[in-house]
Computed example of a mutant assay.
Amino acid sequence: MLAAYRTRLCVTSAILAFLGVGSAHAGETIDLGNGASFTIGGAVRASIRSTDGDTDGFLESARILTSGQFNKVIGFTFDTEIETTGGIFPYLPGDPSGIHVLDAIVRLEFNDYFNVWAGRMVLPQDRSNLDGPYYLGVWDYPIVSAFPNHFQGRDDGVTIWGQTGGGKFKYWAGAYEGCRGESPCATGAAGGGDLLYVGRVSYDFWDPEPGYYVASDYYGKKEILSVGFSTTYQDRATGTSLDPGHYFGWNVDGLMQKKVLGNNVLTLEGAYYHYDTDDKSTPLVNGNGYFLLASFLIDHDFGPGKLQPVIRYEDLMSKNSYDISRVETGVNYIIRGSDARVSLLYSKTNYEDPNVASVDQFIAGLQLQY
């Protein structure tokens, strides 16, 4: 599994023109009257990577995103992903190319305190997954965030969620298909009726983050001091039919983002992960990991955007394979928040195996949303 990750680390992507449709959070909304509406949007991410001297380019992600309301309570989300690099979640390999259903959700939103989503959706396993790749503080998805999922951090199931204080306290609880059937984490033990259960709570001490999703960078529009805790469990998710085992994982994460020295924005983020596969055979990570991130958005215009130096360190300590550590550092060029951003970064990935060489990579990435 981790060897497959290293192979995908060497796959690269090229910058291309924006498709011209909007993002999941913006887009173009058509008012249909009587509380009904329809929104369409989209987003693209592309990069050029030089890996140990080999340079190439590829489209990483292109999404068409739609949502709508039938009335004040009933709504839907339907998003697609055109993906050509094998994914932003490479530790669970899937179809390396093609058009995929990203989200297909029926939303029953009764009030702030109680809502029900059913279908294929983002699992509330940690802040990074609720961010998604477009709303992280650095370009690549963290290698230490390795919970089971079907595709791109999603799975099919039902989530109950709500909030108080306008989004200061939030909870999520859900049941999903998990490691069975065609899921990339399925083993010989999977195939029964055992579901994957996920629960999460978070609290914002400063500005609230309302809604199901979050972000790891608000670029000065919010001041955030947030902590979150998540658990993930599935019985008969690992091992074989004759020797099955359970899967249990948990994570704690935190984000601080505050204006300092005027309107400069200091961001500190960290997360710790624990994965227990019952010491059975499985493609899932068994072990622990953490990451630490710091960035500083400079309150000065450099052309149409602002510069944001950033550094992140990750360490994945696996019991069923060798350890991986990675440091990424460079600068983000913030033109319009997460809707228009360029990243120029260097990363070095080390493998605690004398037979596996470290990987040096330079990344030039562009993401656009509307």
Rank of each mutant, 00 (worst) to 15 (best):
S183W: 00
L316G: 06
R180H: 06
T240W: 13
S183M: 00
N263I: 04
A62T: 10
Q234T: 08
G337R: 03
V327Q: 04
N71P: 08
G22M: 11
G86W: 07
D339P: 00
G33Y: 08
A357N: 11
M256Y: 14
V122E: 03
R180N: 13
D126M: 09
Q367I: 04
G178N: 06
G192A: 12
V359N: 10
L366S: 13
K258F: 03
Y212V: 14
Y91H: 13
A3W: 02
D353T: 08
M121W: 00
N286P: 01
G337W: 00
T232L: 13
S325N: 05
P93V: 04
F114V: 15
N149K: 04
R326A: 01
L195W: 06
L293H: 14
Q257L: 13
I15F: 09
V331N: 03
M256F: 12
W250H: 12
A237M: 08
G220P: 03
H25K: 11
L261T: 15
T55W: 02
G137S: 14
G193E: 10
F70E: 07
V73N: 08
Q257C: 07
E60Y: 04
R6I: 13
P309N: 14
R341W: 01
W172S: 12
G211W: 00
W117V: 09
Q369V: 03
W139A: 11
G22A: 11
D112S: 15
T267Q: 12
G199N: 12
I48L: 14
G162R: 01
G330Y: 04
I88T: 07
P96D: 10
Y273A: 10
G167V: 10
E177Y: 06
L242M: 14
N288A: 08
P93R: 06
G262I: 07
T232H: 04
L225Q: 08
Y135M: 12
P244C: 10
E109H: 15
K259L: 10
Q125C: 05
E81C: 07
D131K: 05
D103A: 00
I105S: 09
G20V: 06
T51N: 07
A340T: 09
V116A: 14
